[in-house]
Design a protein around this nucleic acid. Structure first.
Lengths: 324, 324
DNA sequence: GTGAAAGCGCTAACAA
DNA sequence: TTGTTAGCGCTTTCAC
């Protein structure tokens, strides 16, 4: 293994000079810098991450607790994760994946000094991990919006505003009886924050516009077609729908278009997933990659000791069938 | 921060004794052991991961390069990853997520001693990362099956056998003209190993049973319906289909059942994704979690210096509509 | 059965 | 502008 001492010897300088060339924390003469960099390249030197983090008390690793649970939208999780990884790497951070979605995984990573910061996805309204995060004192960012006061930084899509926006749009289209088909029952049972906020916003938006709205859980499987069909049959007045379940959308979209051609359907989804889905009136984008990017920037800001907004909600945007 | 010295002082023993209590590499008297463990608990001691790995020359971290690319089946990737994480954690290993799917990410992680081993998903037939892995000399396992000789350990589902099995089953059902709707064109263009193997096995199976088979790329979007429809219209003799595109399956399944009720459809998919999809004759399971588990066991075996099969292909299993 | 002490490879004072 | 050196917190020889 090539060590900093090898580089120093090859370049004919001391090891601290090599260290300072790499960190840029000291001014180095051009000549010295050149020789050191040449030696680094020649030897293929890579600093030993553990040695570095032991000495510098910083790992340049962010712990990411992403759930691989059922019912949660895999595409969205994947995109958030890829946004996180990309932004982290762009700032020379790596990602340690913690999927056991319990608090112990968080303490293990932080307590063992494996990470400089923690990011937690899919936060529930009353999430037991929050207390752990507070105690740990490790810089942390949540993706999601738990209830109650806490001084953790939260980043999320503004699902409540999205619900309102959809209701407003459906009212504008002239509908007076509308419905939200949303997360599967198991997600609501866990009190997943985003699902509850979307429901709340949608109903509030309906009230504001004097129209009647209802919300219905929707399974992610092919069963969704039957569920949706039943409800549209039972309540034939429903003429506008907000649909938020990426997994079920392909099953359902064509079906609604066929059975109720005059029904307007707004999808809440990452745009690329609905690009070719027929029968959609509009789409409200879930900016999944951006959520990951913004959350990561928040972590980087915390690590840099900068002040960070305790809550950052990305506003919804409405796109027509051909793109805004 | 609590260090091993604090524990030693509290327990009234030396630092090395604490270390040996934790590692179990030395026999310790019951009394000493009790006092040390009490001190560890009392102080909430967690060994510093970097210090440990610097001294022991082992990180207990596995680098996982998982693509978050388009066209690749997200559910399957997610399940493989969750299988990997679960098995790794069960053996006290953590996962460092490397998504930039280039060779540089691998050298960075291995060269910087951030990981003890590497795992690479979604290997292509001629994958530029293989040369890097060979040079690095880091214990590595591929999920996928590249062409050509290499001494890397490969784990995958036996897509070729699955193709054969599907062809045999369709022949058994009496069909003489069958088709495989498979991966999107962009996946084939990248020469992704599994797609090519599936095609090969399917066509070979058809030949073996004296029936005519054809293979067709299939987009993952809602467009799939049109593509499939066109082909079934152009070639009305097709009466049996093997379908391998999880994303498109929900769009297409009901459509085929409706337009061609006598057409048998076999899905190649993780079982839980097809549980409620109507109109499927059979399903060949893609055991995604198991792939992750088996691949991780292979890495653990390599790390333990045990001998490992250079190629481990998980055999396909056929399930009827109600399960096996 | 236990302790003392020499590193592991790096960073960052402190010195020059 | 550069070098010397004391740690960072642990593992593991060597010694008792």
């Amino acid at each position: 293994m090539v060590t900093i001492a090898d580089v120093a010897a090859t370049a004919g300088v001391s090891i601290s000079t090599v260290s300072y060339v790499m960190s840029g924390k000291r001014t180095i003469s051009q000549d010295t810098r050149d020789r050191v960099e040449a030696a680094i390249t020649k030897l293929g030197y890579r600093p030993h991450a553990s040695a570095r983090s032991l000495a510098s008390r910083s790992t340049r690793v962010i712990g990411l607790q992403a759930p691989l649970r059922s019912g949660v939208d895999v595409h969205v999780i994947m995109e958030i994760v890829s946004g996180v990884v990309a932004e982290a790497r762009a700032n020379r951070y790596d990602i340690l994946l913690l999927t056991s979605d319990d608090a112990e995984g968080l303490s293990r990573a932080a307590g063992g000094s494996m990470v400089d910061a923690l990011m937690v996805l899919d936060v529930e309204s009353e999430d037991p991990r929050l207390a752990t995060l507070q105690e740990l004192g490790t810089p942390s960012v949540l993706i999601g919006l738990p209830d109650g006061a806490n001084d953790l930084v939260c980043v999320d899509f503004d699902f409540e505003a999205a619900g309102r926006l959809a209701a407003a749009r459906l009212a504008e289209l002239g509908h007076t009886r509308v419905a939200l088909f949303g997360a599967p029952a198991e997600v609501l049972d866990r009190h997943t924050s985003y699902a509850e906020r979307l429901n709340r916003g949608f109903l509030a938006g309906c009230a504001e516009h004097g129209i009647t709205g209802s919300v219905h859980p929707c399974p992610s499987s092919a069963d969704a077609v039957g569920v949706v069909d039943d409800i549209l049959t039972q309540t034939p007045e429903i003429s506008g729908v907000l649909f938020h379940n990426e997994a079920a959308l392909p099953h359902v979209a064509a079906h609604i278009a066929a059975r109720s051609p005059h029904c307007d359907v707004i999808a809440l989804s990452p745009l690329h997933l609905v690009r070719d889905v027929p029968g959609l009136t509009d789409t409200i984008e879930v900016p999944a990659i951006e959520i990951g990017t913004v959350a990561t920037r928040a972590i980087l800001a915390l690590l840099a000791g900068e002040s960070v907004d305790r809550m950052q909600l990305l506003p919804p945007r409405l796109f027509g069938p051909t793109g805004s």
